[in-house]
């Protein structure tokens, strides 16, 4: 099992509140994503056992949603909103800046497996644009200086 006892318990706790078993699919995927950092076949099968829903339905749902990476990724998933409000505030150039700084292209992961850089659609941070979501956390009202120090902080962070 990849999912920990804690995650399994959390999934089960969430599942009991729903009138229908299948409803626990998204909550279960969310728990799995938060623990593992991505979801895939192996996890679909584990979830299937925990909530007693066919693996197929979990895979169908999971691939519909874009928030869960479907492959392992770097320790920090840099999700740059590149929709209109952020773009008007320079998110294109922020991506270029990050590509430069991390020496990767959009969609790639740094060699040390620290950072994966992706572009995402509007994250509801339009009045605080531009922004990056790092794993679960929002970083808003960014400028070059803040981006640089954010990356430096993450690099320096010891877990």
């Amino acid at each position: 099992m990849i999912l920990t006892e804690k995650s399994i318990a959390e999934i089960k706790e969430k599942a009991v509140h729903y009138p229908v078993k299948k409803s626990a699919i998204l909550p279960a995927l969310t728990v799995a994503y938060r623990q593992v950092g991505h979801v895939d076949e192996v996890i679909y099968k584990e979830i299937s056992k925990i909530i007693d829903v066919p693996t197929l339905e979990i895979a169908e749902a999971a691939t519909f949603y874009t928030m869960f990476p479907k492959k392992p990724r770097g320790k920090y998933l840099l999700q740059v909103c590149n929709n209109i409000s952020c773009a008007l505030r320079g998110s294109d150039s922020m991506i270029a800046h990050l590509e430069n700084k991390l020496d990767i292209k959009l969609g790639e992961t740094t060699e040390d497996n620290m950072f994966t850089l992706i572009g995402v659609e509007c994250l509801g941070s339009c009045s605080t644009a531009p922004m990056i979501q790092v794993n679960l956390d929002y970083h808003e009202n960014l400028d070059k200086k803040k981006v640089d120090s954010l990356i430096d902080e993450l690099k320096a962070k010891k877990d």
Binding site: L56, E60, T63, F64
Partner: peptide, 9 residues
């Protein structure tokens, strides 16, 4: 049966 599905979107 649950062996065929629709994936992605």
């Amino acid at each position: 049966e649950y062996d065929l599905g629709a994936f992605e979107r």
